[in-house]
Design a binder for these strands. Structure first.
Lengths: 179, 179
DNA sequence: CCGCAATACTTTAGGGCTAAACGAGTGCGC
DNA sequence: GCGCACTCGTTTAGCCCTAAAGTATTGCGG
């Protein structure tokens, strides 16, 4: 059934390179494509409220950490999985909107605490439910059974990869000789 | 079973916002995270050969289109799902490496044809199998049954969304009044 | 045929990210 | 106490992308 776009890609490769097993494309490509659709969907939903995904990432990470909705900049970087430089930019943007504030205080004056302002908290709580509803609409085409099954498969796959990362079949040399 | 990171995120939200259904996080978040892991894996594999994902995207799209491995710049943009400006940059980069060449010819001199050079073809054919093997290693933790099941679910989900896009519960106004 | 909208690509301006250099502050070892 | 390695966050340079403006070319309507 070559009805779908991914199927056509696989067929093309089977024609051009019948010697290579390309079955992984049947998973990797839809994974990326669905991820992009979900991201576009969020961008659209958030755009209506004047925010973008990186803003939501910061606000939501602070919000779900619980009262007083405060994390250090470093902890925020780790939880959002972005570099420290990206966090600096994100926090500056949110600060200029009045949604978070930076607090430097004792005992370690290197550390910057980032905290949701009352307005930031209100704003996030208002938007969060809308975002979740938007995500949910993407899943409307799946039956409850499909959805449960998909969730389990993705969780198992991800947990497996996090516990046993695919190191490097060719890399990870060079670290044997220290500087 | 709060063993996994995504599960902890869901639990945090259930504690902080018990009024919101956050079950979609169980699918959307692993989707993005797995997509990022797959992308990092390809970046690593390709880096060994001095290329990156956008390079591979161009070369592989030309390659699987079949001999003479030639597409117009516009067609390349559509198939790679990037803007025309991005395609210009990508093609320039590949051209400077000698892997593709640009051909302007009759009858329409606006059109630019992008074609794999013999070296580009050889280079891609060498790397493609390595990339597919790299992707495959990510899937090693799944049983054949899980893999088949996951592939089917992702395909059905994607096909459904491509046929019935989630328009905008709040947007897509403004187009009723033409310019 | 002439004008003008449409098409095809390139260029420009700007955004968010990473990697790496940097500046400020901390605390261990002697 | 003092130096020095380390940690934390910010700054800088550069990458790839998008959106929009710009350039060249085509072809239709009158």
């Amino acid at each position: 059934m070559p009805g779908d776009q991914v199927g056509r890609i696989i067929e093309a490769w089977q024609r051009e390179r019948p010697d290579v097993d390309v079955s992984s494309i049947g998973i990797i490509t839809p994974l990326w494509r669905l991820g992009a659709i979900a991201a576009e969907n969020r961008t659209r939903v958030l755009g209506v409220h004047g925010l973008d995904q990186s803003h939501l990432d910061v606000l939501a990470t602070l919000r779900r950490s619980g009262a007083p909705y405060r994390l250090t900049a470093g902890e925020l970087s780790r939880r959002c999985r972005v570099t420290a430089g990206a966090t600096t930019q994100r926090v500056q943007a949110m600060e200029s909107l009045g949604l978070v504030e930076r607090v430097r205080e004792e005992p370690d004056r290197r550390t910057v605490h980032v905290q949701l302002t009352p307005e930031g908290l209100a704003r996030l709580d208002e938007i969060f439910a809308v975002v979740m509803a938007g995500d949910d609409r993407l899943l409307a085409g799946l039956t409850p059974a499909q959805r449960t099954s998909l969730e389990g498969l993705l969780r198992d796959w991800l947990v497996g990869l996090e516990q046993h990362p695919v190191a490097g079949g060719a890399g990870v040399v060079g670290e044997v000789t220290g500087p």
